[in-house]
């Protein structure tokens, strides 16, 4: 059994490249994926976990949408145009990627990881890959030293779907995203403007 940390012993090789591309292509083949998430943020220094749960939507070409429901409500939308955050009181904060290349880069990277954009992923990360049975693990290490001081690495795990992502920060604190109840849509029709209301209402 391959663990998340062990994947970094397996850089992508010729033979594993095909499987990696296949896995990422499978992720990218769906118009839209929605489901539930559980986020566990562990702060080692405080010996404490911060757990939140909610719903997510990964919509190819439109963006990713994150509705945190518990313990506090908040909404995050990331797409090519920018980042939108809405807090529990409905206060909205928008940052345009046009005006801020840092957010543009952040937005592009987040989207590439979740939508399986292999080209973009390989541009920003050193990629590691291992397969154990049906389970596939992808390890990503930011190429940028300065980025590694904030995000040391990412580990994506799944078989048919993306089931878990672990993001470890520069201090070694992991944030684990566990995904469940995936619903895959080959076609999906909804006005993205109403996603927030829609996710809030569910």
């Amino acid at each position: 059994m391959i663990t998340g940390a062990a994947v970094f012993d397996h850089p992508v090789k010729m033979e594993s490249q095909k499987e990696l591309t296949g896995f990422l292509s499978e992720m990218a083949s769906y118009e839209m994926i929605e489901g539930n998430f559980k986020q566990t943020k562990t702060i080692k220094k405080l010996n404490r976990d911060f757990v939140s749960t909610g719903k997510f939507i990964i919509w190819n070409g439109v963006g990713i949408f994150w509705m945190t429901q518990k313990p506090f409500e908040s909404f995050l939308q990331v797409n090519d145009k920018g980042i939108v955050q809405i807090d529990a009181k409905g206060n909205k904060k928008e940052i345009s990627t046009k005006e801020n290349p840092v957010f543009a880069e952040f937005s592009k990277t987040i989207q590439s990881v979740f939508s399986g954009n292999a080209k973009e992923v390989e541009k920003n990360f050193d990629v590691y890959f291992e397969k154990s049975g049906k389970n596939m693990i992808i390890g990503l290490v930011p190429r940028e030293a300065a980025v590694r001081t904030v995000i040391a690495n990412l580990v994506m795990e799944g078989s048919k779907n993306l089931e878990k992502i672990t993001i470890t920060d520069g201090d070694g604190n992991p944030v684990v995203y566990e995904f469940s109840n995936h619903v895959l849509h080959k076609e999906f029709k909804m006005d993205p403007l109403y996603i927030y209301e829609n996710m809030k209402g569910k």
Binding site: F50, W66, S74, L76, Q85, D87, K89, D169, D171, Y177
Partner: peptide, 25 residues
């Protein structure tokens, strides 16, 4: 003060936050 608490909660529990929580206390 509630708006500051709210902003902090978003950084603590919200998704994809790069906030450093080591000094939370």
């Amino acid at each position: 003060l509630p708006s500051l608490q709210n902003a902090a909660l978003q950084k603590i529990y919200g998704a994809f936050s790069i906030a450093d929580l080591n000094n939370l206390e």
